[in-house]
Design a protein around this nucleic acid. Sequence first.
DNA 1: CGAATAGTGTCTGTTAGACATTATCGA
DNA 2: TCGATAATGTCTAACAGACACTATTCG
Lengths: 227, 227
Amino acid sequence: MAVDTFPPIICTVDVVLLTLHDDALHVVLHLRDREPFLGMPALPGGYVHQQEDRDAEDAAVRVLRDKTGIASPYLEQLATLSGPARDPRGWSISVAYYALVPRQLLPVDAAQLRLMPADRLPALPFDHRRIVELAVSRVRVKSHYSSLPVHLCGERFTLPQLQSVYEAVLGEPVNKVSFRRKMDELAMLEPIDGELELGRANRPAQLYRVRREFRRTLSLLERGLGS
Amino acid sequence: MAVDTFPPIICTVDVVLLTLHDDALHVVLHLRDREPFLGMPALPGGYVHQQEDRDAEDAAVRVLRDKTGIASPYLEQLATLSGPARDPRGWSISVAYYALVPRQLLPVDAAQLRLMPADRLPALPFDHRRIVELAVSRVRVKSHYSSLPVHLCGERFTLPQLQSVYEAVLGEPVNKVSFRRKMDELAMLEPIDGELELGRANRPAQLYRVRREFRRTLSLLERGLGS
DNA sequence: CGAATAGTGTCTGTTAGACATTATCGA
DNA sequence: TCGATAATGTCTAACAGACACTATTCG
């Protein structure tokens, strides 16, 4: 069939960059610097560059670096969306990724960025709302049985802090004893010897960090956290 | 940058069509009818046709129908693979899907098809071996906590039959009492009134079918099957 | 009736969550 | 010493798996 008579399929990547703010999942949006939808907040995204990207994930990393300054967040492929109508420029394919980053690693005052709560989004161009919904749902499901939420924490954190991150992501309270048993079962954390979180009027909490082996990987539970 | 000086990115879909044969997962391969790799067994796949496909999934359905004759199997997106080297024709993106089909729905003598055990594959072109591995791994994981394997059964089946399908997919025995409790919990099966599997020298088994609501959906378990 | 497998009752070890207790800080 | 929260011990209910028992067919 006359494939040549059609313009090429548009190949892009989009990244749902998630972080925690005010104990709630937030999405980092980027103000579009070109048409279509110039000036609107949207997911950081862009064309796949076959001359410089080794694959779509590489393109996602590049886009994230160029548009948000985030260098090496936890990044995973989410889904691929396609069709004639999702992009006004023509028939397109977008490989969507999600990324998690600790709040402190976000650039403090980047004029081109917006931090929006994941469950109260503004109108978004393309099918970006659906992509965000997919990402949030994926992160919630995966947080039930994996160490995914540690990538929202900084390098050092206490178990109560980590538990509240899990609770923020899952949107429900977590049993403290079970939570600690599970974190132990994941075998992914190590206490930082002698380091406590002092300064508050109560017993100080032990500081932990992620073991080196799990810095880029997830640890999985046989049985997830309850409810 | 001079995007226009490069040929367009090649956009394709590939489908890992899985079925059960001799109590083991098998992949349906298609003998390629064009270059590259003419004549080699490969995953059914092809170009996305922007003039006729509503999206990549639509393309996968079309490819599956045209190459294997399978009309409406259970189909799910698996992953998207991309890069300059995976296809000798140039920089390509392939949206990969997996599909499950009962053995009896496969065309009996299709000269262009080959049924191969999923864990002892022949050499495959492109990165098709990796795609099959991803699919098998995904199906195994998902079968632990969902009704996915019912799509490998015909319309009517007994619980012992379904259990042996689960065991074949998971590659491990399953506790009978727990299995039945879980199938009950999934609330996805209904007994076919008065229909038993007679003809063998033992107590006949009740025949079941999938409830209409679950024909195109999965049912998920809170806690998966053991081990 | 005997062999064979379907289907179910029941017991026990494991796991998860509720609750209570102890530990350790700042004020 | 008191208030607050960390950390852990312990009890109980829910669950999963092992085993045994009953049911129903064919030969």
